[in-house]
Design a protein around this nucleic acid. Structure first.
Lengths: 189, 189
DNA sequence: GCAAGACTGAAATGGTATTCCGGTCAACTG
DNA sequence: CAGTTGACCGGAATACCATTTCAGTCTTGC
C-alpha cells in the first residue's frame, strides 16, 4: 500500500477513536509507521488531511445510499430508502458518530465546518435526484433545492430530533406514511 | 404595584439585558428596590423566578399569536399566520432573543431546559389547534402531535435554518406555497 | 411581622507557570 | 540526491491555585 493511503487510514482510525481535536499528528505518524514530516509531504495541514478523510466518507455514504435503490420502484419509494440509508449511515458509521459527538461536546470549529459541508453535500445529492425525477417526467417541475431542503430537514426531525423529546421513536412506516401524504404526494405528476 | 410584580419586572429587565447566568439576585433586588431577602419571600430560587418570567412570556406569545387569526379564514391561512407570528415573536422579543443567544454561546443548562419547555408548549399549542380543526370537521383525522411536530419543524427549517446557509431568505409567499402544497393539503378534508 | 443586607461556603474566575502539539527543517539514509 | 525522519520551535492550550463572586441564609432592625 502506498504511504498516502496508509497515512489516511491511520488518521481515520485516530479521528474515529479520539476525535479531531484529540488526535495529534505524532499519533497519526506513529500509527502509520512514518515520520511526522512524511505526512506533510502529502497533506499541507492537519485540516487538509481531515478533509480528505471526510470527503472519502461522503463518497462511501453516497455509495451505500445508491445500493438500496430498487430499479422500477417509484420515486418516493427510492427517495425514502435512500434518505433512510443516509441517516442510518450517519448513526452507524463510527467516524460520523464521533464527529457529531465532538460537535456537541467540544464545538471544535473544524468539525462544525466539516459537518456543515457534509450537509451541503447531502442536499446537493437529494436536489440532483429530484431534478432527475423532474427530467424523467416522474415529478412535477418544482424548486428542487427548496424541496430537497424541506425533505431532508423533515427526515432529520422525525428520525433524529423526535427521539430527543419522546420516549419511543417513530416507526419507519409512520415516517414513510406521513411524508408520502405530504411532501412526496405534492411532487408526483 | 405589588412587590411580587415589581420583582418579576426587574428580573425580566435584567434577564433581557444580561441573560440568565449574568444576572445576579443582588442586581434584581437593586432594580426592584427591595432587599435580596425579599425576593426569596416570593420565589424559592433564582430558577423559580426565571420560570415565572418565561411562563408569562409564553402566555404573551400565545396571545399575540391569537391576534392574527382572521375569523372565517381557512385553517391553513390561520395556521400559517399563527405560526409565522410565533416565529416573529421569537425573533423580535428581546428576552427570547437573549435566551437563544445564551443557549448558543454559553450553553447555560437552565436556559436550555427553558427553551425546550417553550418548544413543548408551542407544540402542545399547535397540536390543540389541529385537534380543534379535526373536531370541527375542517381537517381529516390524523396523528395531530406528529403533524404539529412536522409542521413546526418545517417552519423552523424554512424560516430560521435556511438563512444560515443561504444568502437571501425565503419569502413568506414561497414558504406559504410550499407548505400549502405539502403538509396543509394532506390535512384538508 | 416583615424587610433588609451582612454573611457563608461552594463554585466560578483570573492569572500564570507549564505542557502540548502543529508545523519546519537540518540531518540522514539508501 | 530524492525521500524520509524526528528534534526543535513558538504559539496555544492546560493545569493549578489564589481570589472573587454569588445564591441562598439568617440575624438584625424597623
Amino acid at each position: 500500500m502506498n504511504r498516502r493511503e496508509e497515512i489516511m487510514l491511520a488518521a481515520e482510525k485516530s479521528f474515529t477513536m479520539f476525535g479531531y481535536k484529540a488526535t495529534t499528528m505524532d499519533q497519526v505518524a506513529k500509527i502509520a509507521n512514518v515520520g511526522k514530516g512524511t505526512i506533510y509531504t502529502f497533506f499541507a495541514t492537519k485540516e487538509e488531511l481531515f478533509h480528505s478523510i471526510v470527503w472519502k466518507m461522503v463518497g462511501e455514504m453516497k455509495n451505500v445510499s445508491e445500493k438500496v435503490v430498487i430499479v422500477g420502484a417509484s420515486f418516493q419509494e427510492n427517495a425514502h430508502a435512500r434518505i433512510m440509508q443516509l441517516l442510518k449511515f450517519r448513526e452507524t458509521h463510527q467516524l460520523f458518530i464521533k464527529l457529531i459527538q465532538e460537535e456537541n461536546e467540544l464545538r471544535t470549529p473544524a468539525v462544525g465546518e466539516v459537518l456543515a459541508t457534509i450537509e451541503q453535500e447531502i442536499l446537493k445529492y437529494i436536489t440532483s435526484k429530484i431534478d432527475r425525477g423532474v427530467a424523467k417526467g416522474e415529478l412535477k417541475p418544482c424548486n428542487s433545492e427548496l424541496i430537497a431542503y424541506l425533505l431532508f430537514k423533515s427526515y432529520l426531525a422525525l428520525v433524529v430530533d423526535w427521539n430527543k423529546t419522546h420516549e419511543e421513536q417513530l416507526t419507519e412506516e409512520q415516517i414513510a406514511e406521513v411524508l408520502n401524504d405530504t411532501i412526496f404526494s405534492s411532487l408526483l405528476v
